[in-house]
Amino acid sequence: MAKIVSFINLKGGVGKTTTAVNIAATLAKIKEYRVLLIDLDPQTNATISVIDQEEWQDRHNKCQTLYHLFDDMLNGTDRFNINKALLTNVGSIEGLDLLPSSLYLVEIQDAIPDMDNKAYVSHVDVVGNAISDIKSNYDYIIIDCPPNLGAITLNGITISDYYIVPTVPDILSKIGISLILNRIENFRKKKKTCEIELGGIIFTKIDYRTNLHSSTMTELRAGELSEYIFDSEFPQRISVAEAPIDSRPFLTSQTAKGKSDWRQTQQLITNITNELLKRLGE
């Protein structure tokens, strides 16, 4: 049975998608696991990190994105087909598959809770119901959630075994971590079938030259969440930020491979992935 891991942060620009995509890519390419990447974020950054714009447009034209899954449930249509929507071996990585997102999710995200009055499936169970027949094909399912705890994110939380919080080590992010933990715990209390657990907190986009980043990391490592904080860190790396130019994750991006820090950064991502596996009991 696949282990399902959601990547969540209420702030944008913290490296959430970058972390999720590159861990998924490493699990597939380096560890040779079968991995499904689910892009629940309407910004579609995870999607365009592994497929190009033309391929996404083809998926959209054929009504095979997660927007169409939710739209079907809202309008009683039957266009989305999970097997047709799946894109296999994305990012030039064998064993890495994708369920693509869509910018159009923005248009319907506020209406999604209304489907409880129209459909037989609860609005937080739509994705779980859709992947029920395929999840056994994978070792890991990695979910990139929107930067909020709305209906779409709750679809990811509902089916996840663990959630990871990638965070920039600054004051606002520190406050946001507690908010995420409290909101998810409250959701768990209401939805008894949800058994999600905190898998860890990863420091991202670190600038070691700033006292703020260093002091915040020291404080959090000494605090009540210390056991959940990854030893491995994800510092700011231009090569990682530029990899999506090729519609590829870091490991297969030719742009990234042209950077002088490619090998060192590859090791950083591998270290984070190894620690994730250890924390998930592998």
Rank of each mutant, 00 (worst) to 15 (best):
V5E: 01
V5M: 00
N9R: 12
K16M: 12
T18V: 13
A20F: 14
V21K: 01
V21Y: 13
A28C: 07
K31A: 02
K31D: 03
L37C: 03
D39I: 01
L40T: 09
D41M: 12
P42M: 13
Q43T: 08
Q43D: 13
T44S: 14
N45E: 14
N45I: 14
I48P: 07
Q53N: 14
E55S: 14
E55C: 07
W56N: 05
Q64L: 09
H68Q: 12
D72G: 15
L74H: 09
L74D: 11
G76P: 14
R79Q: 13
I82R: 10
I82L: 02
L86T: 11
L86R: 10
L87F: 08
T88R: 13
L99S: 09
P100W: 08
Y104S: 11
Q109N: 15
I112R: 04
P113M: 08
M115R: 09
D116F: 10
V121P: 08
V121Q: 12
V124L: 08
V126S: 10
G128M: 01
N129I: 00
I131A: 00
I131C: 05
S132E: 07
S132P: 00
K135S: 05
K135M: 10
I143K: 07
D144I: 14
C145W: 14
P147H: 11
P147A: 06
N148F: 14
I152A: 14
Y163P: 05
I164H: 02
P166D: 11
S173F: 03
S173C: 13
K174P: 00
I175V: 10
I180G: 01
R183L: 15
I184C: 06
I184L: 08
R188S: 04
K189W: 01
E195Q: 03
E197S: 09
G200Y: 03
I201P: 01
I202M: 04
T204V: 11
R209D: 06
N211T: 01
L212S: 00
H213T: 00
H213A: 06
T216A: 01
T218E: 08
R221N: 06
E224I: 02
L225K: 09
I229P: 04
I229T: 02
F230W: 10
S232F: 05
S232Q: 07
F234Y: 11
S239D: 09
I245K: 12
D246Q: 01
L251G: 07
S253Y: 00
T255C: 00
K257S: 07
K257W: 03
W262Y: 15
W262T: 11
I269E: 00
L277G: 01
K278R: 05
